[in-house]
Simulated assay, not measured.
Amino acid sequence: MKAASKGRFLLKRVFSLIIPEFIRVFVYPVFRGRSVVNPLHKRTLNALINNSKLYERFSEVSLTQDKLLAKLWVERHAPWVKTPTVYRVARTFSGLDLESFEGSGFIKTNHSCGYNYFFNKGAKVPPDVVESFDLALTQKFNEAAVEWSYKYVRPRIYIEEVVESDLPDIELRDYKVFVVFGKAKMIQVDCDRFTNHRRSLFDVEWNELNVEFEYPSYDLKIERPERLTEMLEAAERIAMPFQFCRVDFYIAKDEIVFGEVSHYPEGGYGRFSPKCFEKEIIDATEEGRLFLDRYYV
Rank of each mutant, 00 (worst) to 15 (best):
V14F: 10
F15E: 11
I18C: 05
I19W: 12
I23R: 01
R24D: 06
R32L: 15
V36L: 15
N38I: 10
L45N: 02
A47D: 05
F58C: 05
T64Y: 04
Q65S: 14
K67R: 15
L69Q: 07
L72E: 15
K82V: 14
Y87K: 06
R88A: 14
F101C: 06
I107E: 10
S112P: 04
G114Y: 12
K124E: 15
V125F: 08
D128H: 11
F133R: 08
D134H: 13
N142P: 00
E143A: 11
A145P: 04
V146Q: 02
W148R: 14
S149N: 07
Y150F: 14
Y150R: 10
Y158D: 01
E161P: 11
V162K: 07
V162L: 07
S165H: 04
P168E: 15
D169L: 13
E171A: 04
D174T: 04
F181Y: 14
D190L: 10
T195P: 00
T195E: 07
R199V: 00
V204I: 15
R224M: 13
E233A: 09
A234G: 05
A235M: 11
I238S: 08
Q243Y: 11
E260W: 11
P265L: 06
P265Y: 01
E266I: 01
G270S: 09
R271A: 06
C276K: 14
E278C: 09
I281D: 04
D283Q: 11
R289Y: 04
D293T: 01
Y295N: 03
